[in-house]
């Protein structure tokens, strides 16, 4: 970093080059994330295609209301992140800090609701290990549904935890006014990541919670 160009690393020629590099790097990382979750979506696709009834029965044991509330919360947090990126671009440090804290709170609410859901499933013996119990047409196949449910939402929640960690790291930097129009790459990168986590949930919600509702087997 040089004094004349604060925040510009030595191996870049300009802020533009640095910003575009950071942005491209983040998008490439998101490609890897798409492929990572893509593998699990493939599992979901094949197994659901094989066991449609067992999957619908499993899905009807999920709480649509909590799922919908969580969807609203998460999309809300995406909005606060989008506004946070804006604040960083304009160099409004205080607004940035407030928006980051809001995002953190919304993310925390999401994870809180998620853990309530998880603990219900544990009590109902729906965690897919050997203690799994389910009254349905083919409990073994419904166990597969819950295996996929826990893997996908679990990895999603893990991503949110990592995101929360990044927010905690960003807040002190934002507080000290480090971000401005030249140098907001960290905020933007985090924003892209958080939106991606939101995107995954946008698909998980209908695929896991809503798929058997029309059959009304519950």
């Amino acid at each position: 970093m040089s004094e004349a160009h604060p925040g510009l690393e030595h191996h870049f020629d300009s802020y533009d080059q640095q910003r575009e590099s950071a942005k491209l790097g983040m998008w490439l990382f998101l490609i890897t994330e798409v492929m990572f979750f893509g593998g699990m979506f493939l599992l979901y696709l094949i197994y659901r295609w094989r066991f449609p009834v067992a999957f619908a029965e499993g899905s009807n044991h999920l709480d649509v209301t909590l799922g919908a509330i969580n969807t609203v919360i998460l999309i809300g947090s995406s909005l606060t992140v989008a506004l946070a990126v804006r604040a960083a671009q304009l160099g409004k440090s205080k607004a940035l800090v407030v928006l980051l804290i809001l995002t953190l709170l919304l993310g925390g609410m999401f994870l809180g609701i998620k853990s309530v859901e998880y603990s219900h499933k544990f009590h109902q013996h729906l965690f897919p290990n050997d203690s799994f119990q389910f009254e349905g047409t083919s409990p073994n196949n419904t166990r597969l549904f819950f295996a996929i449910y826990f893997c996908m939402t679990g990895f999603h929640a893990l991503h949110m935890l990592i995101g929360a960690g990044i927010i905690l790291w960003l807040i002190p930097h934002a507080w000290r006014g480090r971000f401005n129009a030249n140098n907001y790459n960290y905020v933007e990168g985090f924003g892209l990541y958080w939106h991606f986590v939101d995107l995954v949930w946008i698909f998980l919600f209908p695929l896991l919670y809503l798929l058997g509702r029309n059959l009304g087997t519950h």
Partner: peptide
Amino acid sequence: FQMGIFDPSLG
């Protein structure tokens, strides 16, 4: 966890 993701006996 023995979830059965790739276990043929569970589908």
